[in-house]
Amino acid sequence: MTCTDLTEVYRAEYGRCVATLTRLLGDLGLAEEAVQDAFATAVDTWGDDPPRNPGAWIVTTARNRAIDRLRRESTREARHAQSLLLHQADDEEVGPVRDDQLRLIFTCCHPALSPLAQTALTLRLIAGLEVPEIARAYLVPEATISQRIVRAKKKIRDAGIPYRVPEAPELPARLAPVLAVLYLVFNEGYTATSGELVRTDLSREAIRLARALAELMPDEPEVTGLLALLLLVEARRPARVGPSGELVVLTEQDRSLWDRELIAEGHELVRRCLRRDRPGPYQLQAAINAVHTDGPATDWTQVLALYDQLFELQPTPVVALNRAVAVAEVHGPALALAVVDELDLPDYHLLPATRADLLTRLDRPVEAAAAYDEAIALATNDTERAFLEDRRARLEV
């Protein structure tokens, strides 16, 4: 097995293995250490003959390593944990959350942790994202994310925060960070921090967990909205990459390649949200994507109206930037550029990239080239960078 193959196994299985071991051990820190040890063992032992079920192998190996460690401990707590591992590993789960990873997400979103610590820790443990990837999602320095993750683990240990299933009345209070985590996991899959454009393993896992959450909380419209959003965005994935691996933007995509089954399901979920008449950010984003996937072309006037509603609920620079794209389609690039020039999003490559596109449309190639250069310097994904370089090369400067 090559290093690339093992990296793919790590990406696909790390979160599941940590979640399972946390349930078995009842100790998040020990679970993560055991899984990391198991992967280190895999590097030395798999060679050219990997197991048929790598995830199960990692869980079993990690469990045995944890037992060995606990046997070396002489404390009463260690002996109790060893007994649980040996005799209760196969007990059926109880409580409203029966998915290990979903349970771990809710656990990491304990109200004793700060919002940033909640989501950063969950992205690390569930999605197996590295610190640079999480920092990109939050548009903050890597050192900040690293510190928050370390502090969150320490808080869980020192405060004795239990790994347990929240009771039904507690679930709504944990919902906001859980939705944020699933959204960020999906986004990392849809446009990866580095390497190829997409990581389908993350996108599919986020959708699977969103489905599980929707079954758990069917009366929460924002849960339904998030699932609809993920499905409608995922439906366009087959058309996002051209024959040579190049990025294809929404307005240039071949709509015949879109997944009509996912689109139909997403539209039905959006209609369900509309009937409830309790709009929220994820529902509005889902509605925007429903417009994009309805008919042969996008109704940009309707998209702009929805972005106006979204900005009222969520007046962030990123929402304003996305809204500016709709403004350009409805009212022209000059008005959109005036909006973009007022935004402050340091280190976010899509801001100068959007500005470069607007300047190109306004026939200001020198300024557009400078904006493209800034976007190219900030872009970390190879496919996105190649797309920006191509657009930059087309300018007649």
Rank of each mutant, 00 (worst) to 15 (best):
G55L: 02
V397M: 02
R76K: 15
D344H: 13
W57R: 08
L230D: 10
A239H: 05
V140M: 05
T75C: 06
L227M: 12
D68H: 07
T61K: 13
R276W: 09
L104I: 15
V150W: 07
E389H: 00
A34H: 02
V18F: 07
R278N: 05
V339K: 05
A286W: 12
E205Y: 04
L121Y: 15
L350S: 08
Y183R: 04
R208F: 00
L274G: 01
R355C: 04
P218T: 03
K153T: 00
V319A: 10
R72F: 04
L121N: 08
A120V: 05
L30Q: 11
R69D: 09
V165T: 14
G95V: 11
G47H: 09
L209E: 13
T360M: 01
A356S: 04
E8V: 03
R275A: 02
Q88S: 10
Y138T: 00
N322P: 01
L310H: 04
R52Y: 14
A371D: 01
A66N: 10
G15Y: 06
L335P: 00
E389R: 05
G242Y: 05
A393M: 08
V325D: 06
D68Y: 08
L378S: 06
L257S: 09
P281D: 06
R103P: 00
Q285I: 00
G295K: 14
V198E: 09
V150N: 14
I134S: 10
L378N: 01
R271A: 11
T191N: 12
R103I: 03
C273S: 01
A370L: 10
A135G: 06
H110K: 10
R98A: 04
A180M: 09
V248E: 02
A328I: 03
L362T: 01
I288Q: 14
P132R: 00
L121M: 11
R136S: 08
R255P: 00
Q118G: 11
D99I: 02
R164Y: 05
T193Y: 15
D347L: 02
V35G: 09
L250Y: 09
V178P: 10
V178A: 11
V303F: 06
D382G: 06
D68S: 11
L226Q: 03
L182G: 12
E8C: 08
L70C: 00
A239C: 03
E220V: 04
I67A: 14
R11Q: 15
A305W: 03
P177S: 13
R157T: 13
A290G: 06
R355I: 03
L28D: 01
V291P: 01
D390C: 03
L25M: 10
I134V: 15
P177T: 09
A338P: 04
I134R: 14
A89Y: 12
R392L: 08
A206K: 07
A393P: 00
V181D: 13
G15E: 13
I126F: 13
E13C: 09
L125K: 15
C3F: 15
E77K: 11
E167L: 05
A369V: 00
E196G: 03
H80C: 13
T380S: 15
L30F: 06
K154N: 12
T107A: 15
L123E: 09
D37F: 03
